[in-house]
Nucleic acid binder design. Structure first.
Length: 482
RNA sequence: GGCCCUAUGGUCAAGUGGUCUAAGACAUCGCCCUUUCACGGCGGUAACCCGAGUUCGAACCUCGGUAGGGUCACCA
C-alpha cells in the first residue's frame, strides 16, 4: 500500500442516522485510523425529495456522540472540497464529456418511450445499445439541434471485469452482464453512481467502504476508472444488518436509529461497541472494547461475509456492562436526569437511588419505571404475597407487616444498620423468620413483586414517615382481604 | 428470470484438512450467594442447510441442490 489511506463516509441527510449506516461509517473510520489514514465525511444530499431539514446537523451530532471524528468534511476543509454533493454539481458534466472523448461513454438520444418498449415480460429492461454506434457527425448535428440526450457508459465488449474485494475476495462479472448505464441525466446532472466515482477519485479515496448492495455493480464502476485512466480504489464491502432472517433493518421500521437508542437510555459508546461486533470479531474475541481498542484490533480478516441480525437484548446487556463499570460519580451524572424524571421533584436521596439503580438497570430508560413505586403507591395485587420457599402467604404477610410496623414505629435512627437490626429483633420477638418479614415488608413498602433493592434499602429510601404509612396501609389492605 | 454474494446453537460468533464427541458471549433453564429484590458465582439445554466427490481423514476443499440476501432505474 503505497498511497496514504483515505476513506470516506457519505451519508444522505434523510433523517436519523440508521444503525447499519453508522456501522459502515464506523468501519471506514476504524480502517483509516488503523492505517494512519484520513477519514472524510461527504454529504450526499442530491436527493432533494427525501431531504429532511436538520438531518445534516443530525449527522454531525451522531458522529460526535459516537466518537467518530472526521479529518475532512464540509466543516473541515482538507483541500478536496466541496464536501457537499449539491455544491459539486457543476463538475460532473465536463467529466462525462471527457469520458465520451476518451471512448468510455457515448451520447444517447433514446426517449423514455423507446426505453419502456425494451422492457421484457418480467418488467426488467435492458438497454439495447441503440445509440452506441451513432455516426459522430449525426451526434454533433442532433446535439447542435438541441435534442435532449443522456450520456451512457460504453461498456467494453467481451471482457471480464474483476477485482479483489477486501472481504469477499475475487468478484468477476462479464461485460455482457453489464448494462450501458446512464452517467449523465438529460437534466445535465449525474446519476448517483457516476457522481460517486468522480467524487471518490477527485477526493483521492483509496479505500471504498460500503454495503454489499454495490458488490456486484463495482466491476461496472471500475470500468469507468479504467476508461478515465484513473487508479482504481480498493473496495471493502460490508454485509447488511438485518431485522430478522429476511428483512434488512429499515429506517421506517421501529427504532433502528442511533438517536432512538440514545433517548431510550443507551450509552453512545455501548451502541458503537455493539454495532462494531455485528459483522466483525476481533482476533482475541473480546467483546467490550473502547473505540481506541477497536481501532487497534480492527482487521479485515475478522469481517464476516454473511448478514447479521440485530439483537437488542445483547446490546442491552453490553450497555449494562458499561453502566456497571462506571464510577459512582460517573453513574450518578448520567443517571440523574432519569432519576429526576422518576421522582418528580420529591425529596428522595438521589445518590442513594443512583447507587441502587446502577446494577439493576441495563439501560437508563428503565430507571423511571423501576422507581415508579416512589410516587405510585396504592391498592395493589395481594397475590404477590406468596413465597413458597419462604412459606409466606397473605396471613403470614399480615403478621409480618404488622410486626415490622410495630418494631419500626419506635425506631429513632433511620439508617440501614438500625433498621436491619430493628427488623431482625422484631422478627425474633414475633417468632418469625427474618426472610418472611423482609419479603413481606418489601412488598408492603412498594406494592411491587420486583424492587430495586431489598426491604431495608426500600425503607431507607422512602424515609420513616412514608415507610410507616405504607406498612399501615398494607396492614389494612391485608386485613380487609383475608 | 439473468448476474453477484452468503449458509456453524434462538441471536452474535470462533474455527482456514486431523488437537471438533465444535470455543466464547447474549438469551433461556437450574443451582449457590443474599434471613427479602437485584448484582455476582457455578452449571445445564442448544449448531456445522442437504447430497455427491477429493482425501487415510472434511464444519473447513470441489461440484450440484436447497434456502436467503443483493442487483438489474434519467433513485440515492
Amino acid at each position: 500500500m503505497d498511497r496514504t489511506v483515505r476513506t470516506r463516509f457519505a451519508p444522505s441527510p434523510t433523517g436519523f442516522m440508521h444503525i447499519g449506516n453508522l456501522r459502515t461509517g464506523l468501519y471506514a473510520y476504524l480502517f483509516a485510523r488503523k492505517n494512519n489514514g484520513t477519514f472524510i465525511l461527504r454529504i450526499e444530499d442530491t436527493d432533494q425529495e427525501r431531504k429532511v431539514d436538520g438531518a445534516v446537523e443530525m449527522v454531525y451530532r451522531t458522529l460526535k456522540l459516537a466518537g467518530i471524528e472526521h479529518d475532512e468534511g464540509p466543516d473541515k476543509d482538507g483541500g478536496y472540497g466541496p464536501y457537499v454533493q449539491t455544491e459539486r454539481m457543476g463538475i460532473y458534466k465536463q467529466y462525462a464529456e471527457k469520458l465520451v472523448e476518451l471512448g468510455g461513454a457515448y451520447y444517447c438520444f433514446c426517449d423514455k418511450k423507446r426505453l419502456e418498449s425494451l422492457e421484457d415480460a418480467g418488467g426488467v429492461h435492458t438497454y439495447d445499445k441503440h445509440c452506441r454506434n451513432l455516426d459522430p457527425a449525426e451526434v454533433r448535428r442532433r446535439l447542435d439541434a438541441g435534442e435532449p440526450y443522456v450520456i451512457r457508459q460504453k461498456v467494453p465488449e467481451g471482457v471480464v471485469s474483476e477485482y479483489e474485494d477486501m472481504v469477499f475476495g475475487k468478484i468477476s462479472v462479464e461485460s455482457a452482464d453489464i448494462e450501458d448505464g446512464i452517467l449523465l441525466k438529460s437534466d445535465g446532472l449525474p446519476t448517483y453512481n457516476f457522481a460517486n466515482v468522480v467524487d471518490d477519485h477527485l477526493m483521492g479515496i483509496t479505500h471504498v467502504i460500503r454495503g454489499t448492495e454495490y458488490l456486484s455493480s463495482t466491476p461496472k464502476y471500475n470500468l469507468i476508472y479504467d476508461a478515465f485512466g484513473w487508479e482504481r480504489p480498493t473496495y471493502m464491502h460490508l454485509p447488511p444488518i438485518m431485522k430478522d432472517a429476511t428483512r434488512k433493518l429499515s429506517k421506517r421500521f421501529g427504532d433502528a436509529n442511533f438517536e432512538d437508542f440514545i433517548s431510550k437510555g443507551y450509552l453512545p459508546e455501548a451502541i458503537v461497541n455493539y454495532i462494531a461486533l455485528l459483522g466483525w470479531c476481533p482476533k482475541d474475541n473480546r467483546e467490550k472494547m473502547t473505540l481506541r481498542e477497536m481501532t487497534e484490533a480492527f482487521d479485515v480478516d475478522g469481517i464476516s461475509h454473511s448478514s447479521s441480525i440485530f439483537d437488542e437484548a445483547k446490546m442491552r446487556w453490553l450497555n449494562g456492562e458499561y453502566l456497571k463499570a462506571m464510577s459512582k460519580e460517573e453513574y450518578y451524572n448520567v443517571a440523574l436526569p432519569w432519576i429526576e424524571k422518576a421522582i418528580g421533584g420529591k425529596n428522595y436521596d438521589k445518590a442513594e437511588l443512583a447507587a441502587l439503580m446502577q446494577t439493576r438497570a441495563d439501560i437508563l430508560g428503565e430507571i423511571p419505571e423501576k422507581l415508579a413505586f416512589l410516587n405510585n403507591y396504592g391498592e395493589y395485587d395481594l397475590d404477590m404475597y406468596a413465597h413458597q420457599k419462604m412459606k409466606v402467604d397473605k396471613s403470614v404477610a399480615l403478621a409480618a407487616v404488622r410486626l415490622a410496623a410495630d418494631a419500626l414505629r419506635s425506631l429513632d435512627e433511620w439508617s440501614e444498620e438500625a433498621i436491619k437490626e430493628c427488623v431482625k429483633q422484631g422478627a425474633e420477638r414475633g417468632g418469625m423468620k427474618g426472610g418472611q418479614v423482609m419479603f413481606s415488608m418489601r412488598v408492603a413498602l412498594t406494592g411491587e413483586p420486583v424492587t430495586p433493592g431489598g426491604a431495608i434499602e426500600m425503607a431507607v429510601v422512602l424515609g420513616k414517615e412514608e415507610s410507616l404509612a405504607r406498612l399501615e396501609f398494607s396492614e389494612k389492605l391485608l386485613e380487609r382481604n383475608l
